[in-house]
Design a protein around this nucleic acid. Structure first.
Length: 737
DNA sequence: AGCACGCCGACT
DNA sequence: GTCGGCGTGCTC
């Protein structure tokens, strides 16, 4: 007689506990009950997909309380042991329910219980009828004709190939509707030979790059901070490190920021390597995401490039993790499980005993701090690759100067001179829309969002008012709703307004606006960049979208219209962000043979931080900020966690946090080692119709903070006040918004 | 979270 | 007379 076995299951629910079940009917072989497989179970009145954590022979429940699992979904774990462990670590470190962690670690379709092996890629091919048509068919539909010819030549095309060939998906649909194209399944690409991963020869390294590469060790955990200015050749180091790892028969994981995953980046990897590469980014459909996930989990793909959530991709033969632009805020998830993919990369690399490379021109303060304390090996690239010289940065004091739409005469003169030399200009304005404020000149009424404590941004293309925090939109009004005056003024500067103004100033020069609105249409960004590559004089007006990753060799002037907003920001990381952004944007200038120039307009040119950044560079600037952090007892010198709570009725959230503080102080009275602050309103108190507050806990020792949070969460979950609010812990918060 | 139950207000 | 508002309780 076999001992009864119980299944301990992680359920996607905010409850901080696991649930025990009886094995499903027709008891599976014990070997089938591997941790990490999915199980379909009854849960309350619903049926959910959970993940098996472990099996056990005892349970705290009465036999009658147990229900039976309905079915095992997988034969092999969707979360192999290392990832299951990582999820447990995340749940413990970030104080987030394990079931939700496990569920964020899985692609959406697996969450819903779909099979983990989609068995090949969905592709489109011509039907027999279509193959009989002459090559000159579809004379009146050029898009369809192009697709038809491509399919004749190549047989089948997948989504990625359609994109690469710039074929329209509408054409696919049109031909499919005519019965000329059908959806087919292409078997997975066979694994590439590991002995020859290269498609193209690596570039020659300069001595500095070579020295950095020589430092890397591939057989053990070590964290390398690869610090190098834009254009200093970090990517080539990544490529050659990956090459080394591939030839050891292992896989590489590359994490990139959300807007850094450009076709150029992917193209560079694909040109270099002959192995299958899986790409995971937010633009994929659930189906494509699952496909990419399966490709890496099966070991077919040898390189994974992805944004934040790619840190949870199973890699049976992981050999290296690279985090590019490691300072980028998008690596920290800002809702649900508030994890930092960069920090998880470190945990994962250490557990798997493989190297981790953190690359950046402007490392995060905590990363620099780690490097300074020898926890990371610091590799520096100081030279720009090729002949490009570092840009010269000039501060332009605009106090008392006449400004036209934010531009000083000197700045306009700079732009004009650059265009006259037949060079290109990048105008950086970190705010999309036309104007950030609509105000009534007669009574002072300001157009605000009904759901947030925010002003509505005026957009002109097309005209409307838009809340950038909750996406609420309203028609653009001409009359004040309070006093019925028609004197409504659009105050402040956004990209649309600058574009219009510059168009008037430089009527014969093409102006390209690049922000989330102008690039919403697919390939719009690629088209503009293609134009820009041709090198004719033009002006690019854009937000931080322009700051990342794009190679703009003909841009020789970067104009930063307003550097003050970041400098004066009250947020913990405001100045750090400003510095990083300025340096990143500046990196766009002068990448080819021509020297670049960066001009920064400011009312605070003599601000010590600004001076430091411009005259002595990011390192000195960052060290100064670190000194300030140490004085003010902030990370990375002390450890911070926020207890966030929000509710429709503000008092619910405040009462909850007040109680939380009381409980916390009972567990751990305030002291120099541990202090409390709050409940405080969030920087934007009301957002999306909810009032948001936070309790800050600041500790000298990570261990104390962690112990407190753990015990506090247990109590809070049982507390009736917690049911009236949405609450979550944010360990190592990025910002206080 | 999701779902059901339960008890009070303005509607066909 | 009901539809539906959200307070409360529960999930192996």
């Amino acid at each position: 007689m076999s001992v009864p076995v119980y299944l301990r299951v992680a359920i996607p629910s905010p409850l901080r506990r696991t649930f025990d079940y009886l094995p499903p009917q027709s008891p599976p072989a014990a070997a089938a009950l591997q941790p990490g497989i999915r199980v379909r179970v009854p849960f309350g009145r619903q049926e959910v997909v959970g993940v098996l954590l472990e099996t056990g022979t005892h349970t705290d429940l009465e036999p009658g309380q147990l229900r039976q699992a309905l079915a095992l979904v997988d034969d092999t774990p969707v979360l192999p042991p290392d990832l299951l462990q990582l999820c447990r670590w995340v749940s413990d470190y970030y104080q987030h329910p394990l079931g939700e962690v496990v569920s964020t670690a899985l692609p959406a379709l697996l969450r819903k219980g779909e099979a983990a092996d989609p068995g090949g890629e969905t592709v489109w091919g011509l039907t027999a009828e279509a193959r009989g048509l002459p090559e000159t068919a579809f004379k009146r539909a050029p898009k369809q004709a192009a697709l038809f010819r491509a399919l004749l030549a190549r047989g089948q095309l997948g989504r990625a190939e359609l994109e690469a060939l710039e074929l329209s998906r509408n054409a696919v649909k049109a031909l499919a509707d005519k019965g000329l194209v059908s959806e087919q399944t292409r078997p997975p690409t066979p694994p590439a030979r590991a002995d020859d991963p290269l498609r193209e020869a690596p570039l020659a390294l300069n001595p500095e790059q070579q020295a950095a590469l020589d430092q890397l060790r591939y057989q053990a955990f070590n964290t390398y901070l690869l610090e190098g200015a834009t254009g200093s050749g970090k990517t080539e180091i990544y490529l050659q490190a990956i090459q080394a790892v591939l030839s050891l028969g292992r896989q590489a994981l590359v994490l990139v920021p959300e807007i850094g995953l450009t076709p150029q980046t992917i193209g560079r990897f694909e040109r270099r390597f002959a192995v299958a590469i899986a790409v995971l980014h937010s633009g994929l459909t659930d189906r494509e995401r699952l496909q990419a996930w399966c490709d890496t989990a099966s070991g077919r793909a040898r390189i994974v490039i992805g944004t934040r959530s790619a840190i949870f991709t199973p890699l049976p033969e992981a050999g290296i993790i690279i985090v590019d632009e490691e300072h980028d805020p998008s690596f920290k998830q800002q809702d649900g499980v508030r994890y930092s993919a960069r920090d998880l990369a470190s945990v994962r690399a250490s557990r798997q005993d493989i190297p981790l490379i953190l690359g950046s021109a402007t490392p995060a303060l905590e990363t620099l701090h780690n490097a300074m304390h020898q926890r990371f090996q610091h590799l520096r690239l100081t030279r720009r690759a090729g002949s490009a010289r570092a840009p010269q940065i000039a501060l332009l004091d605009i106090r008392r100067l006449p400004l036209q739409e934010g531009f000083s005469p000197a700045m306009l003169a700079e732009i004009e001179a650059t265009l006259a030399r037949r060079e290109q200009v990048l105008v950086f304005i970190n705010r999309r829309g036309f104007a950030p404020t609509l105000i009534c000149h007669d009574c002072g009424w300001v157009a605000g969002c009904n759901h947030c404590d925010a002003r509505l941004t005026v957009h002109q293309y097309p005209p409307h008012l838009h809340c950038h925090h909750c996406d609420h939109q309203r028609p653009l009004i001409q009359q004040c709703p309070q006093c019925f005056s028609r004197q409504l003024q659009q105050v402040g500067l956004g990209t649309e307004r600058s574009e219009l103004f510059l168009q008037q100033c430089f009527a014969t020069t093409p102006i390209h606006r690049i922000d989330r609105d102008s690039t919403r249409r697919k390939n719009a960004l690629a088209k503009v960049l293609e134009d820009v590559q041709r090198g004719d004089p033009c002006i690019l007006v854009g937000t931080q979208m322009l700051a990342k990753g794009h190679h703009l060799p003909r841009v020789t002037l970067v104009a930063i219209v307003d550097a003050d907003s970041g400098l004066l920001s009250t947020d913990l990381r405001g100045p750090e962000r400003m510095g990083q952004l300025l340096i990143q944007v500046a990196g766009r200038a002068g990448r080819a043979e021509r020297p670049g120039r960066v001009v920064i307009q400011s009312h605070h040119c003599d601000h010590p931080l600004m001076q430091l950044l411009v005259t002595r560079g990011y390192q000195a600037f960052a060290r100064q900020l670190l000194a300030q952090r140490q004085l003010s007892g902030m990370p990375p010198y002390r450890y911070l966690a926020l207890l966030r709570a929000e509710s429709k009725r503000p008092e619910n959230a405040i009462d909850f946090l007040t109680e939380a503080r009381r409980l916390a102080q009972q567990l751990q009275p305030a002291s120099p080692q541990l202090h409390y602050l709050g409940p405080l309103p969030a920087l934007m108190e009301k957002r999306n119709g909810r009032f948001r507050y936070q309790l800050h806990v600041n500790a000298a020792a990570r261990r104390d903070l962690h112990r407190l949070l753990q015990r506090l969460c247990r109590q809070l979950e049982a507390n009736p006040l917690s049911r009236r609010v949405r609450w979550a812990v944010d360990v190592d918060p990025q910002d206080m918004t």
